[in-house]
């Protein structure tokens, strides 16, 4: 079945073959939503599970991510206008003073693999930059810090979101080398992601909890 082949090809990161397979899926009458949900998102779920289990490593994640982005480039125009295809919108960045981005980028990839739209505010992002990126369409603010000297700026960013009156409408997720669950709790974050795959799963749970609360 072509969707299974898309799922497998995504894990191998074969950009050309995945484009061919998407064409075959359309020829077989499948919708872009079916290709996205049963091919790409399902494939990235497998990638995330293998990463969490230590069966694959970051280079394999990057390989899969590259194939997924190539596939999304094909699918996005066809999904336009269909809001149901998106799991939610996340503002993501590495906090003030911290210039590390590989962890953040992996989280971005895994979130996109779950169907989230990611608004990446980059590295060394001041609290005000996070605040400016949040509007009523944002469900989650996700922050990364590798350094124990910069992790406290996660707390400052949460305070800035509170001062701006935005905190109650969003969930906060944190992670990175310097962050522990205890630290996340101490600054009032809603979730701590120990790795990129966990972060994506937690984002799904956070959005589900928001919907239930409404």
């Amino acid at each position: 079945m072509v969707l299974n082949r898309i799922l497998e090809t995504l894990q191998k990161g074969d950009v050309k073959q995945i484009a061919d397979l998407i064409g075959q899926a359309f020829d077989a009458g499948m919708t872009p939503e079916e290709v996205l949900n049963q091919g790409l998102i399902a494939g990235m779920d497998v990638v995330g599970q293998k990463f969490q289990a230590g069966q694959i490593y970051i280079p394999h994640m990057l390989l899969a991510a590259r194939a997924m982005h190539a596939a999304l480039d094909i699918l996005k125009p066809l999904l336009a206008g269909n809001g149901n295809a998106r799991a939610g919108r996340v503002v993501l960045g590495t906090v003030r003073g911290d210039h590390h981005d590989i962890g953040k980028n992996l989280v971005s990839t895994m979130l996109e693999g779950k169907g989230f739209e990611v608004i990446d505010v980059g590295i060394d992002a001041e609290p005000e930059k996070f605040v400016a990126a949040v509007d009523e369409t944002i469900q989650i603010v996700a922050m990364s810090a590798l350094l124990s000297t910069t992790a406290p700026f996660m707390g400052e960013t949460i305070e800035a979101l509170e001062r701006a009156g935005l905190r109650k409408n969003i969930k906060i997720m944190v992670g990175g080398g310097a962050v522990t669950r205890e630290f996340a709790d101490s600054i009032g974050a809603d979730a701590y992601g120990a790795d990129a795959a966990t972060a994506a799963l937690l984002a799904m749970e956070l959005v589900a909890s928001q919907k239930e609360a409404r």
Binding site: G97, D98, H99, H100, D124, L147, T149, T150
Partner: peptide, 12 residues
């Protein structure tokens, strides 16, 4: 490298 007040320079 980007210099930082909070840690070692980061290769950019």
């Amino acid at each position: 490298y980007a210099l930082s007040d909070f840690g070692l320079p980061v290769a950019k």
